[in-house]
Each structure stands twice: as structure tokens, then as C-alpha cells.
């Protein structure tokens, strides 16, 4: 509506009118500048042979040597595969879980029961990952809780965290256990916004509970689901190293070692600053591409997108 005036004039006018809103935004802008944009400059060391003592400027340029070292590393294929698979399983099983919980809770009419379930289900979210990993490790030992359960049902006890084929299920399942309640909050709030008249209209048309779920509830929260999915895909490859380094050991490296845990070992523990930055940068580029792809798909097929 201001289109005939130059940008500068419009901006100043808007600034005067809405200065309080701009003031509120300043802290976040500063935050993102300091913690998200300024550090990008530091990522340049991926192209250098960085030595702290020589400093950022004087460390020699080495082009793509750090990337080459990573791509030709004997572990490259495995790290990439493990990272992708772990992310993929987390997405496949971990993403729908809170939605299902939210839908189930939404059907519960007994308020006290509903609140209790909700509280209990999101408590694990507040437990430190160190404690969670300690519990998982203890329970997975040959004499631990999980093995007692397995034995009760007639199975043979064996140390679960030493079995590479069980690593991913344990990782994903414990993630779901920890995050399902917390993750369902956003869907529950979306559900509470669904127009009750729609349900009444559906009932008049003779829809049962399940029919209402499929035809009213789900379409109503689809935009929320899609946005959450896009965000999730954008960070698909950025699984943190914390849980991994707490749960893995050399006998499960085969399935457990992922890009971020490798970066941790090489970068922080062995002073390979440039090498680990290069790997991190590679990881980020893939994430960015995935995010753009997901967003584009979504725009095309569901008309919902981030921007």
C-alpha cells in the first residue's frame, strides 16, 4: 500500500509508528547476529590448516584438503550411512509418535486422567541426558532390567549395548520415550483450536469417532504437522553427539559412530580443529539442502511452507 514511496522513507515512517515493536525485536536480532552470523566467519578455518598459536589470519590456506581427507577416510561411508539411518529411523518412528499420543489424549474425556498422563509423559524430557544414558547402560547390562524382562519372557540375556544391531532401536526407542510427551504439547494446542462446529456437523452427517478423526481432526492440524516436519528434516543430519558418546563403545562403532561423534573425537579430543570444522560444514550444507527440498515439496503439494 506504500508501494509508491521509496523504501527508506517507508522504513523510517514505520519505525516511528512501531518503535516499541522494533525495540522488542532488538535482543533477538543481536542474539542471532552474535551467535549465528558472526561465527560463520570462523567456519573459514575449514579451508585452512588452523593452528591456534599462529592465529586465524596466519594459518595457511589449504583449499579443500580437509574435505578430501574426510571423503577419502575409510570411515566416511560408514559415518554418513550411520548418521542418515539413525536420523531416518528417528524421523520415521519418532516423528509420528507425539502426534498419535496427542490424538489419543484428545479423545480422552476424563480430565484428571488426561492431565495425569500428560504430566507423566513429559517428565522424562527434563531428565539430563547423562542420567538417561546411565539408566539405559545399566538396564542393558547382562544382568540389567531389560535382560531380566527378556529372560522372563523366555529369551536369553546378553549385553544389549554390545550388539551393533540393537544400537539403533535402543537409541530411537529411548528418544521416543524421552520426548513423546513434550513433543505432543504443540499438537494438543493445535487440536484445541479446531472448530467444534465441524465436529457437530460431522456428527449430524452420521460420522463416528474414527471418521471424525480422519476427516476433521487430521486435516485441521495438518499445517502444524507439515511445519514441524520441515523443521525436523532441516536438522535431519545434525544429531548431537552427547547421547551417542554416552551410549556407544568400540563394539558398536559399526552402527553407532555418527558424524558428530567423530567430529567430537577428532576435533575436541585430538586438536583437529580444521578437520572437524570441515566435517561440520559439510554436515551443515547437507542439512540446508534437505531443508530447501522439503520446503519446496511442501509448498508444491500442501501449500504450507516456512517462507
Amino acid at each position: 500500500m506504500f508501494s509508491n514511496k521509496p523504501f527508506k522513507e517507508r522504513f523510517i515512517k514505520d519505525m516511528k509508528r512501531n518503535w516499541t515493536l522494533y525495540a522488542i525485536a532488538i535482543p533477538m536480532i543481536v542474539f542471532y547476529f552474535l551467535f549465528a552470523y558472526k561465527p560463520m566467519y570462523g567456519a573459514l578455518i575449514a579451508f585452512k590448516e588452523y593452528k591456534p598459536a599462529r592465529g586465524f589470519i596466519d594459518s595457511p590456506w589449504v583449499g579443500f584438503a580437509q574435505f578430501e581427507r574426510f571423503f577419502t577416510s575409510p570411515f566416511f561411508g560408514r559415518l554418513l550411512k550411520n548418521t542418515v539411518l539413525l536420523s531416518f529411523y528417528s524421523l520415521l518412528f519418532g516423528f509420528p509418535a507425539p502426534i498419535i499420543l496427542a490424538l489419543l489424549l484428545n479423545e480422552v474425556r476424563h480430565t484428571v486422567f488426561k492431565k495425569t498422563v500428560q504430566t507423566i509423559s513429559y517428565l522424562p524430557h527434563f531428565i539430563s541426558i547423562i542420567v538417561v544414558a546411565g539408566m539405559i547402560t545399566d538396564f542393558s547390562m547382562s544382568t540389567g532390567l531389560f535382560n531380566k524382562i527378556i529372560e522372563f519372557f523366555g529369551g536369553a540375556a546378553h549385553p544389549l549395548l554390545q550388539d551393533p544391531s540393537l544400537y539403533r532401536p535402543i537409541y530411537v526407542a529411548s528418544d521416543i520415550w524421552q520426548q513423546i510427551g513434550w513433543g505432543s504439547i504443540i499438537y494438543l494446542s493445535a487440536l484445541s483450536g479446531v472448530d467444534q462446529q465441524l465436529y457437530e456437523a460431522a456428527e449430524v452427517d452420521g460420522a463416528g469417532r474414527f471418521r471424525k478423526l480422519i476427516s476433521v481432526t487430521l486435516p485441521a492440524i495438518t499445517p502444524t504437522i507439515v511445519i514441524m516436519l520441515i523443521l525436523r528434516i532441516g536438522s535431519l543430519l545434525s544429531i548431537g553427539y552427547e547421547k551417542t558418546i554416552l551410549l556407544y563403545n568400540p563394539s558398536t562403532y559399526e552402527t553407532a559412530d555418527i558424524i558428530s561423534s567423530y567430529v567430537y573425537r577428532v576435533g575436541i579430543l585430538e586438536q583437529g580443529w580444521s578437520y572437524s570444522t570441515a566435517i561440520g560444514l559439510f554436515n551443515s550444507v547437507i542439512n540446508l539442502v534437505l531443508l530447501l527440498l522439503a520446503n519446496n515439496f511442501s509448498k508444491r503439494f500442501t501449500q504450507t511452507s516456512l517462507w
Binding site: F35, Y41, G42, A43, I45, P52, T277
Partner: peptide
């Protein structure tokens, strides 16, 4: 820091800055 970051790009860059930016100063 790690938790606050939305994407790996940011977090990697942050640590990179910690390493790089400060390193430059300390050299001098």
C-alpha cells in the same frame, strides 16, 4: 549453546568462532 542452536551450521560456526576468532587475538 548446542541446545540453543537450530541447525548444525550455527553450532559448528559458533565453535569455529570460539576457536578461530579468539585464537587470532591470542596470537597477537
Amino acid at each position: 549453546l548446542m541446545k540453543g542452536m537450530m541447525t548444525a551450521l550455527l553450532s559448528v560456526s559458533v565453535s569455529a568462532m570460539l576457536l578461530a576468532g579468539c585464537g587470532a587475538n591470542s596470537g597477537d
